[in-house]
Each structure stands twice: as C-alpha cells, then as structure tokens.
Amino acid sequence: MILNFFHNFGRYLTMLWTAFSKPEKFSMYYKETLRQMNDIGVGSLTIVGLIAIFIGAVTAVQFSYQLDGTLVPRYYIGYIVRDSTIIELAPTITCLVLAGKVGSNIAAEIGGMRQKEHIDAMEIMGVNTAAYLIMPKIVAAVIVIPMLVAIAAFVSVIGGYAAAVIPQLMSEAEYIQGVRSFFQPFNVTMMFVKAIVFAFILTSVPSFQGYYVKGGSIELGQASTNAVVYSDILILLADYVLALLLTQ
C-alpha cells in the first residue's frame, strides 16, 4: 500500500512536470484556457451563489441562537458571519462543492478521452497531451476559483443579512456595524491563498485520475469518484496546514 502510494505520487508529480512544459502553440493553449475559465467559472456561478447564500444565512441564524441570552453584543453576529465566511467557509465549502462538480467532470472528460483513444490520437500527432489537456484546466481554475470564492464570501454576508435582519433577529444597523467591525485585510489574503491551493488540488487530482484511467465504464466511474474523494480529503488537509501556517 505504501509502495503503491509512492508509485502514484511519483506519477502525479511526473504528470505535473510534463503538464507544465512549454506549449507547442501558445494560441491553442490560450483558447483552451479561456474555454475552461468559462466552463469552470461561469458554469459554477449559480451553484456557488446558492450555496454561499445559505452558508451566510445558516451562520447568522446559528450564532444568533448561540448568543441569545449572553452578554455578547448582537452586532457580533455580522462580524462572525463576515470573518467565518472569509477565512473558512467561503473557500473551503465552495471548493469542496467544486471538487464534486468540476473535479468529477474533469476526471470523466479526460478519462473518456483516454478510453476513446482521443489521447492516443493526440500523442501520435505529436501533441503533449498532459500539457494540452491538463495545464489549461489548472491555470483556468487557479484564476477563476479565487474569483468565485470572493463572490461566495460577498454573497454569504448578504445571505447572513437576509437571514438575520428580515426575521428581525437583529436590526440592520447592528448587522452592518458587525460586518464593518474588526476587519483585518490579511484575512482576505488568507482566503485567496486557500482558494488558489484548493483550486490547484481540485483540478490536478481529478486530471491525474482521468489521465491514467484503465479499463471500461466501471473504472471510469471509480476514477470519477476517487477524484472527488481524494480532492475533498486533500482540500481539508491543506485547509488545516494553511490554517496552521497562516495564523501562527
């Protein structure tokens, strides 16, 4: 099992090394990156927005319940919603969801191309398939996923506002005061660092699973499932490591 882990880790690193070699033709890679940015970014906007609203709303309602009857000022709810979404919930939950949506799609797409001999066809033409199929996805994700996470954080705060102010758990002025209190710009940096690392994980791991798939439709399904499971585990692990590194 340990040998198998190192074997696969070695192949993963080799794949990344090959994927980031010099493109045959820059314009083709540029076009492909734009297409991937559209698929990953625009294609995920609705689900990210929906999830973000509920993240903010649930956080506001839960903390309202927790702080009820305590001496902690009510406006803290706005502050907690803002910081918890920026530091943790927006990057982590968004990327866990994207690992499911984008990651499984990448593994299935590349794995399907492997099984239908599309990758062999490109190899024979002289195309560096790891670079052409994987690099644009990683680059696109690293660019657009931080944007999605930023949007998710913003929408979460609005979701928190709707959940806290409309049912009159607190006043609008209290919520806005909370959102504007104790702001630390470094938290936004932390959010973007997490988003970039998670974006890399949720595209490179599924690419690996798809690129080396063997067998038929059952193996492709397994590769797609593994892509999501391993991405999720690695995102949570990276979240912990980044939290340690960035908050010390």
Partner: peptide
Amino acid sequence: RMKVGMLFQASA
C-alpha cells in the same frame, strides 16, 4: 510523430 498519421479502429 508530426510525420505520422494514424487511423484508429473507432476513428477517435
């Protein structure tokens, strides 16, 4: 490989 063409069984 740029001098090679290949027709695949399932066309690919």
